[in-house]
Design a binder for these strands. Structure first.
Lengths: 161, 161
DNA sequence: CTTAATCCCGACAGAATCAGTCGGAATTCG
DNA sequence: CGAATTCCGACTGATTCTGTCGGGATTAAG
C-alpha cells in the first residue's frame, strides 16, 4: 500500500515553490538542485500541476514556475489528485462513488468489502483536505519557535495517533 | 494511490472464511467459486495469511482453511499487513518510524514532507485498527438493521469529502 | 540581432512489480 | 488405493513506473 514516488517528488516540488512564493518564478533547475531530484522527471510532474491550475509557468530566460495561490490556500488533496489522479484505495471506491451508481463493481450488492475501501478513502481525503501546503513549507526552525499556530485553519486534523 | 488487488482478493477471501467460521475448514476451491476469483492465485495469498497466524490449514481430503480467531477479533489492519506488508504510504513513513531513528531518509531534517505521509499513515491505520473482519462478514441485510454501532471507535473519520 | 536560459512535449527504454498460470509433491479421508 | 486438497517453487505476460533524450518554442539580456 503506497503512493508512488511521483506523489513524493511532486509534493517536494510544490514545497519548494511554496518557499519561493512571492519572489517570482523559480526555475526547475533550481528546484531540482535544491531537492536533489532529476530535473527531466520533474518536468513531467510539473505539467500535471500546471494543468490542474496549481502553478503557472513563465517561459524564456529567468522564467520558471510559481504558485497560483498562497500555500495556505492549496490543499494537499488538490496536489495529490493532480499528481496521481483520484484518491481511491481500490477501484471499488473511487471518489464520487458515495452512494449510488458504482458501475465498476457489479458485485457491489454482495460485496460488503466496499465499506472498507470507502472508509479508508474517507480517512485519507479527510487528512488531505485538512492540510495545506503551508503546513509543509516551513523548514523546521529549531530556534525559539516552538511550533506556533502555523496555519489559521484548524479543519479538524484529528491527529488520531 | 491504491492498495493492490492482492489486498482486495485477500480480504474477500477472509470474508468468506469469516462467513464459514465455526463450520470446519473451507476449501479454496469453494472460496474461489463463491467470490469468482482465480483459485491458483488465492493459493499464494492464503500463504501469507497462514504465515501471519490468521488462518490455519487442514490438509488432505475435506481439508481447507479456517480462521484462528472469531471475526470480531481479527482487525483489518492485521489482514492487510499480512497481505501487503507494513502500512506505509511512502518509505519515509514506515510503521515504527514514529519519533527517532528513521534511516530511510537522510534528508529528514530538511524534509518536512515527512509529516504528510505520517499523518496519512496514521489515518489509515486508525481506520484499519478500528474495524474488524466482523464488520465486513455480514451480507448486507436490508432488513430492519439500520446501521447499528458498528465499531466502538469514533477515530475522527472526518468524512470531509 | 544574437545568445542563453527556460519551458514545452513527445517518444523511448530499462526495471520493477503484479496478476495469474503450471506442474507436481505431500498429506489425509474414505 | 484413489480422490481431494494443501503446499510450493518456477515461470510468464502485461502493465506501470521511473527516468532519459532530443529538439522546438519563447523570452530576457547584452
Amino acid at each position: 500500500m503506497s503512493f508512488s514516488t511521483k506523489g513524493e517528488y511532486g509534493v517536494r516540488l510544490m514545497v519548494q515553490l511554496g518557499r519561493h512564493y512571492g519572489a517570482g518564478p523559480a526555475s526547475l533547475a533550481d528546484v531540482a538542485a535544491e531537492e536533489e531530484l532529476p530535473r527531466p522527471y520533474l518536468e513531467q510532474l510539473v505539467m500535471s500541476l500546471r494543468d490542474a491550475g496549481l502553478v503557472v509557468s513563465t517561459r524564456g530566460a529567468h522564467g520558471g514556475y510559481e504558485l497560483t495561490r498562497a500555500p495556505q490556500d492549496i490543499r494537499m488533496a488538490d496536489i495529490l489528485r493532480a499528481l496521481e489522479g483520484p484518491i481511491a484505495p481500490m477501484i471499488c471506491a473511487t471518489e464520487e462513488t458515495d452512494a449510488a451508481h458504482e458501475p465498476a463493481c457489479d458485485r457491489t450488492a454482495r460485496c460488503s468489502v466496499n465499506l472498507l475501501w470507502v472508509r479508508i478513502r474517507d480517512a485519507i481525503t479527510g487528512t488531505l483536505e485538512g492540510m495545506t501546503l503551508a503546513d509543509l513549507v516551513p523548514l523546521r526552525t529549531p530556534l525559539a519557535d516552538p511550533q506556533p499556530a502555523v496555519q489559521p485553519r484548524p479543519t479538524g486534523a484529528p491527529l488520531g495517533v
